[in-house]
Design a protein around this nucleic acid. Structure first.
Lengths: 132, 132
DNA sequence: CGGGATCCACTGGGATACTG
DNA sequence: CAGTATCCCAGTGGATCCCG
């Protein structure tokens, strides 16, 4: 995804901002990543704990999501070679630094949720009209 | 997407933040939406102009993306019943209010891009080791 | 010009079973 | 317990053609 935005254009700085934004949304904009980051906010958590805490995520998707975060250096994985094995995940400093920007966004979401929802209803209403 | 995060859990406020964040990422986290918002930042733009300005987006996906934004009240669509038809799109006040939070995120992305990329390389390196 | 409709390839993501 | 591999389906998004 997101190799978009190639053209010979005027406001190159703004476009670069957009591309950077697009890249980080590619990481964080999927189905589970934000939930995982949220769950790791307060310290290391074991794999199975995450599984239960998040709820609804499949075994497989949790591993994939964690791999993605690990790959980008946002999460640190620590495995204890005990039997049975024990693995914990925690946010790296880089990962922590992402929390504030995300929180800014979620605050917007919380504040404006009513407006968005009423806009959605208004839109649906128009749709129904034209079907008259 | 994103009906996730259902369970009987402790920190209900934090989980609600996550859900709100998830919802707005569902809107904005797709392949083209941020590019469109970026392109509309400075005022009304015509459909075809958007098409060229963004570059790489298909005719169809641009309409779908715009519909989505319109549905959520982030974008206002104005059509002039001329021949040939003319339609412009612009950010609503609500849409404008989203720009700052997004900018916060893109600033993070720009600042930490080097770290993310070196983390990625390090990760790849490990992968290659184990294939030894 | 703007925007539907249709067709199709590709991927995200769930269920499940197997390994160490 | 943590992780991998396989299978399979639903959704996303591109290309194309058609309409006002």
């Amino acid at each position: 995804m997101m190799k978009a935005g190639n053209a010979l254009h005027h406001d190159e700085a703004a476009r670069d901002e957009c591309r950077a934004l697009g890249q980080i949304l590619d990481r964080v904009g999927d189905k589970w990543t934000v939930m995982v980051v949220g769950a790791l906010k307060d310290g290391p958590v074991r794999f199975t704990a995450l599984l239960r805490q998040i709820g609804g995520v499949s075994h497989r998707m949790l591993t994939l999501t964690l791999r993605g975060l690990e790959e980008d250096g946002l999460v640190k994985r620590t495995s204890f070679p005990t039997i049975p094995p024990k693995v914990t995940y925690e946010l790296s400093p880089l990962g922590h630094s992402l929390i504030d920007p995300l929180r800014t966004l979620s605050q917007w979401a919380v504040e404006h949720r009513p407006e968005v929802e009423s806009a959605r209803r208004a839109f649906r209403a128009e749709q129904d009209d034209e079907a008259a």
